[in-house]
Design a protein around this nucleic acid. Structure first.
Lengths: 289, 289
DNA sequence: CTCAGACATAAGTAATACTAATGGCTGACT
DNA sequence: AGTCAGCCATTAGTATTACTTATGTCTGAG
């Protein structure tokens, strides 16, 4: 009840902005220019705000405006609120000038695939303004305003338009410093995925050690593997760059299929977005060979 | 260009309010109830805010919501801004705490019907905070934020949901100090209405004096009649309390219908508003008898 | 007296904001 | 394992709002 009235008690933000700009410029006409609307719109908004508040905010003069006492009372609070909201939105806002691109991606993909390759890509596109947003799957990606989305899941979860980043099977990787057969090495399990070492044992019908380290992402597993902690069973696309550079090697030449993988979803028609999507598809398809 | 973008950089205040309420309640459904709108509306507003800011603000769960890091970052600023704007408007507006009520009414109805009876009503409702806003018809009542509206006009103007305050026919009233038949007394005409003495002459087919005093409201006419200036032809509902107290008497037992009258429009579901509407309907229906 | 500048208003329309209806998902309960 | 309540998401439709255009009015400068 009281809450219902509360709902009606705040006028539209644009009225406040019209008021603040008019108070600062002492002119509806100048405020209108600044706000990108007509003088008539500003006049109506101020009138509406005055009606809503039940007080006069300006004295209209032949040459512009003067604030009333009520207007002077209102102005500091409105200025403060507008400044707060502007700061609040600015902390998220993307640069809107020049070619720009937002990629929302799983942390692992950013750390292990995108970051290593981005230096070259940015060098090729010096004017591009790029924003990488890391997201935790199974986040709701549509909530993130991004030109490109890369996330981990099933094709069904990703949607029919999402393209898998290949190769998507799982391979065991280890540091080149680790010697010995798979059966004698510590295994690292990524628990946030559907597939893992149990699947490996199932496919090849051979005993393997029980995994001794559990992490929640392939990326974390890769990091541990790189540090020689053990053998990680991870998506081949994720391991690609490390295999290519030799910092990781395949611990066993075999692989198993995976129900889940990384998917790219292009959500923008902008040329910069399409170019980047093509680039990502190309660098992942190259793999370690 | 930059000014144009500036205009677009602040989302509607309602989106922020939807965000704040949802963050506090961790439920779109509960936030919707609080804000007096549907869950669907809140869902869309949050989605729109997330798209505008380019970040996810909530993680949707089966049983409600969780704030994301970005959501937690945004919340204090939004809370601060909303509080500032609420304080800014509250310093002019009605108190929003405790039972409160705003009635927008024609001046005449306030002076001649509501004011005489309000003392008793307020005594019965000591916690009620009441605000009477006098308006000049044919004002745009929708611009006035009021729980109840009472204004003068036609049913068509008032809208289908508006209830007429009865009795709405016109009666001639005078001070008990004035003696003599109608045809020998000065007549007071209310020029701001459709009906008047011409209608009286037309209905009863008898000559009457040409009105010698013209005013623009029934209330003003009543005031002059009470002061013995002459006979006023006014809405019976307006004259009711004065007839009841004997400060005015009917100058002629006859009456004529009126095309216009006073209408009550209830615009709030709050119990305080409904109770007051019922009270107004009851005190006007009692009439002078 | 004329005119430029600025605010106010009416009318019209594009855009927005909301509702109603319904779908999908998840966890609790039986 | 099946059912159902609770909650979010989406679509389609429509009422309402927000804005523009056009024009009127007023005032002070020239």
């Amino acid at each position: 009840m009281a809450d219902f009235l509360m709902k009606k008690s705040l006028p539209p933000l644009n009225w406040f902005r019209a008021f603040e700009a008019s108070a600062r410029r002492l002119s509806f006409t100048a405020a209108a220019e600044e706000l990108g609307m007509t003088q008539s719109a500003v006049s109506q908004q101020i009138r509406a705000l005055e009606t809503r508040l039940g007080v006069g905010l300006f004295v209209r003069q032949a040459r512009g405006l003067a604030l009333t006492d009520d207007g002077r009372k209102l102005l500091p609070k409105v200025e403060g609120a507008i400044e707060t909201l502007s700061a609040a939105t600015a902390q998220f806002g993307i640069e809107t000038q020049g070619p720009h691109l937002t990629i929302a991606s799983s942390v692992s993909m950013i750390d292990w695939v995108l970051s290593p390759a981005l230096r070259a890509y940015m060098a090729q596109n010096p004017d591009l303004s790029l924003r990488l947003v890391s997201t935790i799957w199974p986040d709701d990606f549509t909530a993130t305003q991004a030109d490109l989305q890369i996330f981990f899941g099933t094709q069904k979860q990703a949607g029919p338009n999402a393209r898998p980043l290949m190769p998507s099977h799982l391979i065991p990787v280890k540091s080149p410093d680790l010697s010995g057969p798979l059966s004698e090495l510590p295994l690292i399990e990524s628990v946030g995925t559907s597939d893992g070492w149990a699947g490996w044992a199932n496919v090849f019908k051979e005993p393997i050690p029980r995994p001794s380290v559990h992490v929640d992402t392939y990326g974390a597993a890769l990091g541990l593997a790189k540090n020689g902690v053990g053998v990680a069973l991870v998506s081949a696309v994720l391991a690609g760059p490390e295999l290519k550079s030799g910092t990781l090697v395949q611990a066993d030449p075999r692989q198993i299929p995976a129900k889940e993988g990384y998917f790219l979803n292009l959500q923008s028609d902008a040329p910069t977005a399409k170019a980047c999507a093509a680039w990502i598809l190309s660098i992942t398809a190259q793999g370690p060979g």
